[in-house]
Design a protein around this nucleic acid. Structure first.
Lengths: 117, 117
DNA sequence: TATCGTTATTCACAATAAAGCATATCGGAA
DNA sequence: TTCCGATATGCTTTATTGTGAATAACGATA
């Protein structure tokens, strides 16, 4: 009567990219980059992600330091007090990461179908 | 002169299996099951993994409750004070998880080769 | 040159997670 | 019946992490 419990089993995954052994980014950081790109500032992005500005700033700073090319250019002062925009490398990184995640996800979906404990 | 930084980039990943939306296990818990299987007790396994008995016990308890079939059978009292052994379902789960991880890893290795930021 | 909103940074405090300690319970074997 | 070592569980203490407030620096623009 009871079919195998395939339907209730689910595989979840998470990926991170490291550069020289240091964590460059994972899902959360990429999402932060996306929000910075859309909103034009770290502060706004932090608000949207419901995280403290402090944490967001730390993440951005770390990413910039650990990446071979800076991902976010920060402008201090100016018309509206400044802001932050993504470099080409930053935008590119988002795409690369998302595509990578998509490919892994496709495999996970396949494996989930096969799964049975 | 500087070749693309492929060599320094590394992808790391982690998978978890959920049952009915509750985390059943990931790498750490499977490792714990393996050590219990070899050592014959939760206490020994915990020592080997350098974690507190308390934490190990909690993990085992959670896994047993969340899995459709118990994975670890715990014997209380007795000759040597008792111990814990894996059920067939427990041993099977270890194999399934490790194979799954291996398959994902193969994909990750491929993707890492393609990776370039 | 005064203003404004953002980046940049420090620090104390809160919230959460993990570790450690103590102790009760169990049951085969001596 | 007593002993032993492992399971079982509550409680306290310690570590780790995150948050919030406060403040300085900045520079295009009005």
């Amino acid at each position: 009567m009871n079919p195998p419990n395939k339907d209730k089993l689910k595989i979840d995954f998470r990926i991170w990219i490291f550069n020289n052994g240091e964590k460059l980014f994972g899902k959360g950081r990429v999402e932060l980059l996306e929000k910075i790109n859309k909103s034009g500032s770290i502060a706004n992005a932090a608000k949207e992600m419901n995280m403290s500005y402090r944490q967001a700033w730390q993440m951005v700073n770390e990413m910039n330091k650990r990446s071979n090319h800076p991902l976010v250019e920060k402008q201090l002062g100016g018309k509206n007090g400044g802001g932050a925009i993504l470099t080409q490398a930053g935008k590119s990184a988002i795409n690369k990461f998302n595509e990578l995640e998509k490919r892994i996800n496709a495999v996970i979906v396949e494996e989930t179908k096969k799964l049975e404990l």
